[in-house]
Computed example of a mutant assay.
Amino acid sequence: MIRRTLLLIPFCLAAFGPLALHAAEPLDLLYDAPTGTATPDATTTSTSTSTSSPTDTANPTAPVAITLDDVYAQARRVELEVQQLTEFEDVPTMEVAEPVRADLLPRHVWQKGYAILIELQVFRRRHDLPVGTVRSVEPLRSLDPALLFEQTQYILTDLAILKARLGVTRAAPPPPPAVNKRPIDVYNLYSQVALDLQALNRDEIGASYVFAEVMRIFEDVNALLYRLGLEDTTFPPEKRVDVTPAQSLAATFELLAEVQRLQRDAGIPRTDFSAFRNRDEARSTDVFNLVGMVLAELQPLKAHLELRREITPPAEYYEGKTPADVDQLLIWITRKLRLIRSL
């Protein structure tokens, strides 16, 4: 039976008991004024454009137009709030993220924002704070920037709670205005925030967290097979020993190729992810990022197959997983997708 997971209600301040809310400046989470017209998923310099009907986007008649400039400004607020935490915990100079040069879409930015929320889960565990479920969104053929804006507010709310719990009293300065921003600009800004959070967590995302996200792909692919009425005759491959993150990254690219084969059959414009091929030494974080892109690319496929209500289940918590576990699961899922000859 396909697993259907209800969205959990986001964290509420009351859930954490009486907080010293006066200890930190409250964040203004209200949207101020529209700066333009939102453009779902086609807001990119790519020559490929997504074709979608009004039913493909969430709340297409929203009275307030939210643009990528608005999203970028809120992402800058996220960066500044995280810097408050790094200064509070006296974290040394952080690594500078290398910009990705690609024509990404809003759905890829959403997945990067999801990664920020996972990093905040890691931070919570380090401080023995309760951990909730990261919010997912239903499959859409294209993603409206308004949803990205909503996600920034979830991130900022969690940061406000963390600052209150830790007694961080300094307020972050307001971000400068943003102009003519594209999805890749927000993505690269989030990449820096993710690195800052890894420095704050004293570690990068490990194999157990990567495995948890690959399990979400596993559930999505099972949903595709069920929708198409295909019997799953696959079995997990033998686990390879001494698997490196570079090998796991290569296995993820093989899985991505199968997803994009089906996108081609469905008439869904494909994204060039060659910029994600690590030029030096691959790390677990690189695998985590590309696994996120696979999840993002599965969503328009699910929408194409009218699985709009089949929301990707939240990640479970695993311990003790290794790159070999990740590699084995990736290869198994690739075998599952190859059962779908065409769409």
Results as ranks from 00 to 15, higher is better:
residue 332 W to K: 04
residue 120 L to R: 01
residue 4 R to V: 15
residue 261 R to H: 02
residue 327 D to K: 01
residue 7 L to C: 11
residue 152 T to A: 06
residue 336 K to T: 06
residue 30 L to A: 15
residue 302 K to S: 12
residue 99 P to C: 08
residue 55 T to H: 12
residue 128 D to F: 10
residue 20 A to R: 11
residue 232 D to E: 09
residue 215 M to P: 09
residue 266 A to E: 04
residue 102 A to P: 04
residue 130 P to S: 05
residue 44 T to I: 02
residue 30 L to C: 13
residue 187 Y to Q: 05
residue 222 N to K: 09
residue 121 Q to M: 13
residue 66 I to G: 04
residue 184 I to Y: 04
residue 284 S to Q: 12
residue 307 L to C: 07
residue 265 D to V: 07
residue 30 L to I: 10
residue 31 Y to G: 11
residue 116 I to D: 04
residue 8 L to I: 12
residue 101 R to K: 15
residue 72 Y to P: 03
residue 323 P to A: 08
residue 197 L to D: 03
residue 71 V to G: 03
residue 220 D to G: 12
residue 307 L to D: 01
residue 61 T to Q: 12
residue 99 P to R: 07
residue 88 F to V: 06
residue 163 K to N: 04
residue 15 A to F: 09
residue 67 T to W: 00
residue 147 L to P: 06
residue 103 D to F: 06
residue 228 L to K: 12
residue 192 Q to S: 09
residue 121 Q to I: 05
residue 110 W to F: 13
residue 67 T to I: 01
residue 106 P to F: 00
residue 241 V to C: 00
residue 229 G to W: 07
residue 278 N to Q: 14
residue 237 P to T: 10
residue 332 W to C: 04
residue 168 V to E: 01
residue 156 L to P: 05
residue 47 T to P: 13
residue 239 K to Q: 14
residue 120 L to T: 04
residue 114 Y to V: 03
residue 68 L to C: 03
residue 297 E to H: 05
residue 174 P to V: 13
residue 203 D to W: 00
residue 40 P to Q: 05
residue 122 V to S: 02
residue 334 T to A: 06
residue 125 R to G: 05
residue 83 Q to T: 12
residue 128 D to A: 12
residue 81 E to G: 07
residue 333 I to G: 01
residue 299 Q to I: 04
residue 48 S to T: 15
residue 121 Q to W: 06
residue 24 A to L: 05
residue 197 L to Y: 03
residue 138 E to F: 06
residue 161 I to V: 15
